[in-house]
Simulated scan of single mutants.
Amino acid sequence: MIFSVVALAVIGLGNSNISTGDGSTPRPQTTIRYPIRFDDAPAVRAPQPRPTVSYPIRWER
């Protein structure tokens, strides 16, 4: 019985009709602009990759 009450409450709240008065449903506005750029950040170059071994690896032929 508790499960049915919770299910009915979820269905009832999920189907509520919220509008702005002109018949349209309000939608969240985006606050992000892509691509993301950090203009105030100092320009730091990424380190270049280096080999992890200093000897040649021999493979079987």
Rank of each mutant, 00 (worst) to 15 (best):
R61N: 13
R58L: 14
A41M: 04
T20S: 10
T52E: 10
R45I: 04
T30G: 14
G21S: 00
L13P: 02
T30S: 14
R33E: 05
M1Q: 09
P28T: 02
A7K: 11
Y34D: 02
S54F: 08
R58W: 13
R27L: 04
S19T: 15
D22L: 11
T20Y: 14
L13W: 10
R27V: 05
Y34W: 00
N15V: 09
T52H: 07
P28R: 02
T31M: 05
S24V: 02
I57T: 12
P28Y: 02
I2G: 07
D39Q: 08
N17S: 09
A9V: 12
P42I: 04
I32M: 12
P28H: 01
D22C: 03
L13S: 06
P42L: 06
P49V: 13
W59S: 06
V44Y: 07
G12C: 08
L8G: 04
S4M: 14
R61H: 13
D39K: 09
A7D: 07
V10C: 12
Q48Y: 08
T20P: 00
D40H: 07
G12Q: 05
S16A: 14
I57L: 15
V5M: 06
G14W: 05
R27G: 02
I2F: 14
V10R: 06
R50D: 08
V6I: 15
V5Y: 09
V44L: 09
E60G: 06
T25E: 01
W59I: 11
G14L: 02
A9L: 15
R61W: 12
G12M: 11
P56Y: 04
R45W: 06
Q29G: 00
V10A: 10
R50Y: 11
T25D: 00
S16Y: 13
D40G: 05
N15L: 15
P51F: 02
E60F: 13
A41Y: 06
T30C: 03
E60H: 05
I57D: 05
P47G: 03
L8N: 03
S16N: 09
P51I: 03
D40L: 04
A43R: 11
S54K: 08
L8I: 07
A43W: 05
S4P: 01
V44N: 06
G14D: 02
P56E: 01
D39L: 13
G21N: 01
S54C: 03
P26E: 03
T52D: 10
Q48F: 12
V5N: 09
G23Q: 04
I11W: 13
Y34H: 01
V44W: 07
D40E: 11
P28V: 00
D40A: 13
D39C: 05
R33M: 05
R61T: 14
R27T: 04
W59R: 12
A7H: 12
V10W: 14
G21I: 01
P49S: 13
A41N: 09
M1V: 11
P49M: 10
R50E: 15
V10D: 05
T52R: 10
F38E: 07
